[in-house]
């Protein structure tokens, strides 16, 4: 461990590499976490199937670029981004009508149990449809090198796309009718209803938007890492850590927490070894919860 820290001090360029890798991948976590924050904040549903939505997006991109499914119409996996957004939006709406609708206003335990069940069903569905193998969608993009430093183009492109998507979502939430309705419902559903907002519609839209965002994140994950029907859980956990750290309805916080988590994972993996890379994520959650507990007890408020 000390040797690894020494290495970082001796070759400062390694820090740049870890920072870049962490920030690029953290941007994707941040986006998926923002979706969770929305659903959590607006309708108080803690969605455990978040990571499985991410995997679904990944499989959409992979299937679109795979001649086995598309024949001669196979396209570059990046084309999957808009397709996944549209399909997952529809899917999110469908899941809302089918399941989530019945969970709004229910207690914590019910929502967790129902979305956990949903996660298992989605995993098995993906497994039945695409098989249990680990898959990758190949972007074919190049890698740029500067001496020891390497940046894969796909990671950079993913970062930019994430930034654009985030900007679109923020603008939408701020200025559109629906965005305003979502924020109003989040603040006080009853008042919103009195004001003539169709909250049922707002909930459905919010959940669908979340699924679409996750789908977009999944498309990029399939080109940067690997996808497998049962790998969703790791993303669900990351989303929960980020949202817990940042708090609900705090977009800048979510972005900073997401990027930070990415960087912490990279440093954890480098200094302590890959076996601690994920342990870092969970220990961050513990740390955040302790800090929050102390903060909130000072203000004499209930912990969320």
């Amino acid at each position: 461990m000390l040797g690894n820290i020494q290495l970082l001090l001796q070759i400062p360029l390694l820090n740049v590499q870890l920072l870049l890798d962490g920030i690029f991948i953290g941007a994707i976590f941040a986006l998926a976490a923002y979706g969770l924050a929305l659903v959590w904040g607006v309708m108080n549903v803690k969605n455990l199937a978040q990571g499985d939505f991410v995997m679904m997006g990944g499989y959409i991109a992979w299937a679109l670029s795979n001649p086995k499914y598309m024949g001669d119409y196979a396209v570059h996996p990046i084309v999957g981004l808009p397709v996944a957004i549209v399909l997952m939006f529809g899917f999110g709406w469908f899941i809302y009508r089918l399941i989530i609708r019945r969970l709004v206003g229910k207690d914590l335990f019910t929502t967790l149990l129902a979305t956990f069940g949903l996660a298992i069903v989605l995993q098995q569905l993906l497994n039945q449809m695409f098989g249990p193998e680990v898959q990758v969608a190949e972007s074919g993009f190049q890698t740029r090198t500067w001496g020891l430093l390497t940046v894969a183009d796909i990671k950079f492109i993913a970062f930019v796309l994430m930034a654009i998507l985030a900007a679109i979502v923020i603008t939408f939430m701020k200025y559109s009718r629906m965005g305003q309705a979502i924020r109003a419902t989040a603040q006080d559903p009853r008042a919103a209803k009195v004001m003539g907002i169709d909250t049922e519609n707002v909930y459905a839209f919010t959940f669908a938007l979340n699924a679409a965002i996750c789908g977009a994140a999944g498309v990029l994950i399939s080109m940067i890492w690997v996808i497998q029907p049962f790998f969703g859980l790791a993303y669900s956990i990351r989303c929960f850590v980020i949202v817990t750290a940042a708090g609900l309805g705090n977009l800048p916080g979510v972005i900073i927490a997401g990027l930070g988590l990415g960087v912490i994972e990279q440093y954890g993996g480098f200094v302590l070894g890959a076996e601690y890379q994920q342990a870092m994520v969970v220990s961050m959650l513990v740390l955040v919860l302790i800090v929050r507990q102390i903060q909130q007890s000072r203000q004499r408020q209930a912990v969320i």
């Binding site: 890798d21 890492w225 790998f231 440093y267 993996g269 480098f270």
Partner: peptide
């Protein structure tokens, strides 16, 4: 569950 060994 980890699909990233870039740090290693």
């Amino acid at each position: 569950d980890l699909a990233d060994i870039s740090a290693t």
